[in-house]
Write a protein that binds this DNA or RNA. Structure first.
Lengths: 236, 236
DNA sequence: TAGTGGTCTAGACCACCAC
DNA sequence: TGGTGGTCTAGACCACTAG
């Protein structure tokens, strides 16, 4: 284990154990240089990593301080449905239920239309695992940003998988909720009052919206897992 | 803007724009040193940050390569229920429905019991916003790791809020799913077939389990939001 | 074996900011 | 104005690994 990793782990331990409490100032860099018998660059690397992880705050002239508390954030893996099904050992297939190219802007996506060019591609499809309904999906794609999407056959390629590979995004927002199947019950093979998990997702590339999607999963047998790995478990 | 930040942003731009595609080798450190006219440490800092963010993979002897694709991870904020309610402008209150100290180990939590000492504190409580049911919660706390929890009055202090402040954790796993209210319907003021969002959560401190909790929210008016901020938006 | 990334050093200059 | 963190340099040694 490298020296800066050990220094970082050591300081982290003192914070997590409560030896250094939120608001406490930790030793100056030059003091840690003496304590660990290394150069300032090495101490700086350890402290910069702790600051990036949010465990300490650093201020010029005054020093470094233990941050107030863990922000309770977790890394949530948003599944690609085809991968999800195949990982479970199922055979994936997709049904394109509807496809519509819109010139106007009446959907979820905020698109500034370009005269004479299509603005939004609206899709509705159903994902199946071994022929059984797994999820239904409503999607809008910004054709101004992603014109090539109009030529893709989404009866073969799942739109989410195609976008994942072909259109890098820089920002995304996911909203997770629950509701009864309602009007989608027949598509999912459920009763209208069956509970479903709903995942809504918006992505942007450099501020421009790329896609909006709402995916509806039967509650039975589907869940999202978010895992937070503390700093001590991070690779070095 | 610092030099290593500009180098990092520049390489990031070339990757996101598609100029450098997944699998491509990016220039060696010593080549970037020439290109940017700086020292190797500076280039190394930029590339290390890109590797930590998952945008490139680095291998000794062979170089650095553009990673295959964005891993679709999102930062999910797990809400503290009291804060969540108060943020919405509601008045928070809690009802402790049951409390049980267990010597054995029959629950969700894997605790190695210590003879003569209690192992698990089991709690059931209801969270209310302006007197209306907001969520029900089943929780287990590891009393071997957190003995002081036995003395806390959880009819006053919500267990989640107490733990957040008093017991730092290093690892957490959250599982999000949906189901019908079922047996919890009366506690939530719902019909048995009403859809609910279920958040299950486990935390550890240095490998030792701290708590397990299952929170059940009425689907109506509750959702979790996870936001991913691309690297270009990260502070330097 | 040669070339890469991983790490560390000893020193330097600068921006910032409490005093 | 002095001391802090932010950054950068020029060089070094090492571990790892493809050829």
């Amino acid at each position: 284990m490298s020296l800066h990793s050990r220094i970082r782990a050591d300081i982290e331990r003192r914070i997590l154990s409560g030896e250094w409490k939120p608001g406490d100032r930790i030793p100056f860099e030059h003091e840690l240089v003496v304590e660990y018998g290394c150069s300032r660059m090495t101490v700086n690397k350890a402290l910069s990593a702790l600051a990036a992880a949010g465990l300490i705050n650093r201020r010029r002239r005054t020093g470094s301080f233990v941050a107030q508390q863990h922000v309770d954030m977790a890394a949530l893996a948003i599944p690609d449905i085809r991968e999800e099904i195949e990982t479970r050992g199922g055979t994936y297939s997709i049904e394109l239920l509807s496809r519509k190219v819109g010139l106007s802007n009446g959907g979820q996506l905020q698109v500034s239309p370009v005269p004479g060019r299509p603005a939004i591609l609206g899709l509705s499809c159903r994902h199946l695992s071994d022929g059984m309904p797994f999820a239904v999906e409503y999607r809008e794609i910004n054709l101004v940003q992603v014109p090539e999407a109009e030529e893709v056959d989404f009866a073969v390629t799942p739109p989410g998988s195609w976008l994942l590979v072909n259109v890098p995004w820089t920002e995304a927002e996911n909203r997770i909720s629950a509701r009864a199947a309602g009007g989608d019950c027949r598509k999912l093979g459920l009763q209208p009052d069956a509970a479903c998990l709903v995942l809504e997702r918006r992505t942007w590339r450099s501020g421009a919206p790329i896609t909006f999607v709402r995916q509806i999963f039967p509650a039975q047998g589907f869940s999202l897992v978010a895992r937070f790995i503390g700093m001590s478990a991070q690779p070095d």
